[in-house]
C-alpha cells in the first residue's frame, strides 16, 4: 500500500499532501519518531543481548549453553512447551469452536474468561497454583498423602504455562471463525460428511493460518514465560529451572556473559518466530488475505 503511494506522492507532492491533510514536515516527523522508538526500544536491546552474549568469546558462549544446568533448563523449557502448546491447541480450538459456531447461555462470560490470563498478573497466575496444590494449599495434604508433586515440579510448571498461554490460540481463532459463520459446515453436512470429516476437511483448513499464528505466539510465550513459572518452580537448579529462570539466576550471580548467552537463545527463538511469520505472510499472503476476507 505505502509502496504504491510513495511514487505518487513524489510525482504530485502538493496535491497528495493536501489530500491527506498533513504537510511533508509532519509526515517526516511521524516516521522519524516511529523509527527512533523502534531503534531505541526494540533493536538496541536485542543487539545488546547478542553483543553481551559474545563479549567473552565463542568458547565462553559455548560453555555457557552446554553447561549441565543450562542444558537441563533448555530441555525443561522444550518439554514444558511441547506439552503446554499442544494442550492449548486442542482446548483453544474447542473453545473457539464453541464460541463461534453455537449459541448458548454464558457465552459472553466464556469469552471474558478466555481473556482472564491476559489481564491477571503472571505472579498471581503462579500463586493460584501454589494456593491450590502447595503444601499448605487446599489439595496439599491429599497430594502429599498420595505422594504426588505438582508445585515445585514439572506438573506445576506445565499448569502455570498452560494457564498463561491459553488465550493465544483461542483469541486468534474466535474472530476468524465467527466471521466465517457456519454455512461451510452446513454445506458439508448436507453433502453427507461426518462431523469429523467436516472438522478436518472444512473447518480446520479454513482457519489454518490463524491457527498457525496462534500456535507461534503461544509457543513463544510458553518458552519465554517468567512470572508465573518463577512462582511455581522453586528454582531448583537442574530440575525445575526453565530458560528464563536460569537466565535470572546467572544474572543475579554476576555471570552476565553466561546469562546473555542463554538469553540469546531465547531471543533467537523470537527472531525465528518473527521470520517464520513474515515468510509465511509473504509467501501465502494472497491465500491468507482470502481466507480472512471470506
Amino acid at each position: 500500500m505505502s509502496d504504491a503511494a510513495l511514487p505518487l506522492a513524489a510525482a504530485a507532492p502538493a496535491r497528495r499532501s493536501s489530500a491527506r491533510g498533513e504537510s511533508l514536515g509532519v509526515r517526516i516527523a511521524l516516521i522519524a519518531v516511529s523509527l527512533l522508538f523502534l531503534l531505541l526500544f526494540l533493536l538496541l536491546p536485542l543487539a545488546a543481548v547478542f553483543v553481551e552474549a559474545g563479549s567473552k568469546g565463542w568458547e565462553a558462549y559455548r560453555a555457557a549453553i552446554t553447561e549441565p544446568d543450562a542444558l537441563a533448563a533448555i530441555r525443561l523449557t522444550l518439554l514444558v512447551a511441547a506439552i503446554a502448546v499442544p494442550f492449548n491447541i486442542v482446548v483453544g480450538i474447542a473453545a473457539a469452536w464453541a464460541v463461534a459456531k453455537f449459541e448458548f447461555r454464558g457465552k459472553n462470560l466464556l469469552i471474558s474468561l478466555i481473556d482472564l490470563p491476559f489481564s491477571v498478573s503472571p505472579v498471581i497466575s503462579g500463586l493460584v497454583f501454589v494456593l491450590l496444590f502447595g503444601a499448605q494449599g487446599y489439595f496439599g495434604p491429599w497430594l502429599q498423602a498420595h505422594d504426588i508433586k505438582i508445585v515445585f515440579a514439572l506438573p506445576g510448571l506445565i499448569l502455570a504455562t498452560v494457564f498463561v498461554t491459553f488465550p493465544f490460540v483461542a483469541r486468534e481463532l474466535i474472530p476468524h471463525m465467527q466471521s466465517l459463520g457456519t454455512a461451510d459446515e452446513e454445506a458439508a453436512l448436507t453433502l453427507g460428511a461426518s462431523p469429523w470429516r467436516v472438522f478436518f476437511r472444512v473447518t480446520l483448513p479454513n482457519v489454518k493460518w490463524s491457527l498457525f499464528y496462534g500456535v507461534l505466539l503461544c509457543n513463544a510465550r510458553a518458552m519465554g514465560e517468567f512470572g508465573a513459572v518463577a512462582v511455581v518452580s522453586g528454582k531448583i537448579r537442574g530440575l525445575t529451572n526453565t530458560m528464563p529462570l536460569h537466565i535470572e539466576i546467572l544474572y543475579n550471580e554476576y555471570m552476565g556473559a553466561a546469562a546473555f548467552a542463554v538469553a540469546s537463545l531465547l531471543a533467537g527463538l523470537a527472531l525465528i518466530t518473527l521470520a517464520l511469520k513474515t515468510f509465511l505472510e509473504w509467501r501465502f499472503g494472497d491465500e491468507i488475505a482470502a481466507s480472512r476476507r471470506h
Binding site: D184, E186, A187, V202, P205, N206
Partner: peptide, 11 residues
C-alpha cells in the same frame, strides 16, 4: 442445498 453465498470450500 445451494446456499445464498454458495458456501464453496475455499481451500
Amino acid at each position: 442445498f445451494v446456499f445464498q453465498h454458495y458456501a464453496l470450500f475455499k481451500t
